[in-house]
Simulated assay, not measured.
Amino acid sequence: MNLNRRTLLASGATAATLATLGLPVRAQEGPLKVGFIYVGPVGDGGWTFQHDQARQEAQAQFGDAIETIYQESVPEGADAERAITQMILGGAKLIFTTSFGYMDATVNVAAKFPDVKFEHATGYKTAPNLATYDARFYEGRAVCGTIAGRMTKTNKIGYIGSYPIPENIQGINSAFIHARKVNPDVEMVVIWAYTWFDPAKEADAAKAMIEQGVDVILQHTDSTAPQAAAQAAGNVYTFGQASDMAAFKPTPRISSIIDHWSPYYIQRIQAVLDGTWQSQSFWGGIKDGVVQIGEITEAVPAEVKAEAEALRDKMAAGEYHPFTGPLNKQDGSPWLAEGQTPTDEELHGMNFYVEGLTGEIPS
């Protein structure tokens, strides 16, 4: 094929101009290039680590048919928009943006590149070339909350939240409801870290809880710093977040909630390769294998382990919803009647604590 200067310009240097105009960049020959935007470092031991493990599994599954690339520790906001655009100019035709705060950046870039496919984790905005995917973390929190309620000796459990968004609030409420079911005397201390990944802030939050008498800690932040703080304190139990955090077994980490993304990534990459990809909103849970409960260690009594596993299995079979009425909101007003469960739309908009939780949700 004769490649003259005009051809080279059209395929290369003018890509930036095309992007500025909102026009599609030319399709490339060769493997499908798949990009991943990460909010933390791949070595965080939690959320980003787990996404990157899934990326590697997808690369192994497809071999030379795809090429995966990633950028780690991308701040949410304008920086994300730039990072996504750079991946497209580098030839990426499918991009996974793996944090809630990337939502608007992903929407903006997707509008400029209609021929590129986008997948945004935990968001709710879609477009013809933009899909969303999420996990029902609140199901895993129900299991961890059950164990926490049984294991606490001080009747104080803690929850380190990242940001006060529905995803976090669902988990706090679910953990508290199920801890209270097995131990009506349980109180929950919630501390907001206002970060997904900051080991120093996460460690400080854990230490502050422990000083208040908390002896079981759950978290929705990404580092292992709370595990290390609990280990240093002694007699404090924790749960792995997003990945197994197995280095801290058998204590303080006594179980974990694991995000298993690789089947979804493999399925969606295959759809692009097949030409069958369509925008969708996916929200998978325990029954889908997206949310998994890590090994419950020997530090947990056998009867408590059996109770937790039975709850897990009921959710896997579709026989139980963690938010089943009667349940009231924090102010005592009715939320769910006897036997009633919320719609997914209600859960996606959750902005309140359930009855029994103290403190306010920051605005």
Rank of each mutant, 00 (worst) to 15 (best):
G240V: 03
A148K: 00
D259T: 14
F197A: 13
T221P: 02
Q170T: 09
E345H: 15
M209K: 02
A242V: 12
E345P: 12
A16I: 12
N328W: 00
Y133G: 01
F137N: 07
M151Q: 09
R268C: 14
T238S: 01
D274F: 01
I293T: 13
P334M: 08
V182C: 13
T126L: 11
I296S: 06
G77D: 04
V190F: 05
A54P: 12
A105P: 03
E295D: 08
C144E: 05
R82P: 00
P226D: 07
T68Q: 01
T238M: 00
G332S: 14
N351I: 08
A203N: 03
F36K: 09
A175K: 00
G289H: 03
Y124D: 09
E139P: 01
S174R: 01
E167V: 03
G35R: 10
A78D: 07
Q278G: 02
W335K: 09
P166C: 04
L336A: 03
R141S: 02
E303L: 08
V291Y: 03
F118S: 13
M209Y: 03
V109A: 08
L8F: 10
D79K: 11
E119F: 06
D288K: 02
A302R: 12
T106M: 02
G349L: 12
D331P: 10
L94E: 02
T341A: 12
Q227A: 02
I257D: 00
D198Y: 07
G91S: 02
I69G: 06
T358M: 14
R6G: 06
E298T: 12
I95Q: 13
R26S: 11
K93Y: 02
A317N: 06
N2I: 12
I293W: 07
L3M: 13
Q56Y: 00
N2A: 08
P263H: 13
A193L: 01
I84L: 15
S174N: 05
H348T: 12
K153T: 11
F62S: 09
M188C: 15
P75R: 14
